[in-house]
Computed example of a mutant assay.
Amino acid sequence: MGVRTWIESWPVYRQFSGDDPLGRGAAAKSAGTERIRPRVSTADKVVKSVCPYCAVGCGQDVYVKDGEVTQIEGDPDSPVSRGRLCPKGSASLQLTTGSAREQRVLYRRPHGTEWEPLDLDTAMEMIADRVVEARRQGWQWEQDDVRVRRTLGFASLGGATLDNEENYLIKKLFTAMGAVQIENQARV
Rank of each mutant, 00 (worst) to 15 (best):
R135H: 00
Q94W: 06
D20C: 02
G153S: 00
T96F: 15
M177V: 02
V3P: 10
Q185H: 02
G23T: 04
Y107W: 06
Y107M: 09
P38W: 03
Y13N: 05
E116M: 07
E34K: 11
V132R: 11
D61N: 15
K65A: 13
G32W: 12
R109L: 08
T42G: 10
D129R: 06
D66L: 02
L169E: 13
L173P: 04
A155W: 02
V180M: 00
Q15K: 15
L120K: 11
K65I: 04
L118V: 02
V62A: 10
F174D: 02
V69H: 10
D121M: 10
C58V: 04
G32F: 14
W139V: 01
V3S: 11
Q94S: 12
A176N: 14
W6F: 14
R108P: 03
A91T: 01
S156M: 11
T113W: 05
T96D: 10
N164Y: 14
E125K: 13
N184W: 14
Y13A: 12
V56R: 06
L173C: 11
Y13H: 09
S30R: 11
G57K: 03
G67W: 03
T97S: 09
G74H: 08
W6N: 15
R39N: 12
E165Q: 14
R108Q: 10
A27C: 04
R82N: 13
R35N: 12
G25C: 04
M124L: 15
E8G: 05
D19C: 08
E8F: 06
F16I: 14
S92E: 14
C58M: 06
P117N: 01
V188C: 06
Q94I: 03
W141K: 07
V12G: 11
L173S: 13
R147V: 03
T96A: 14
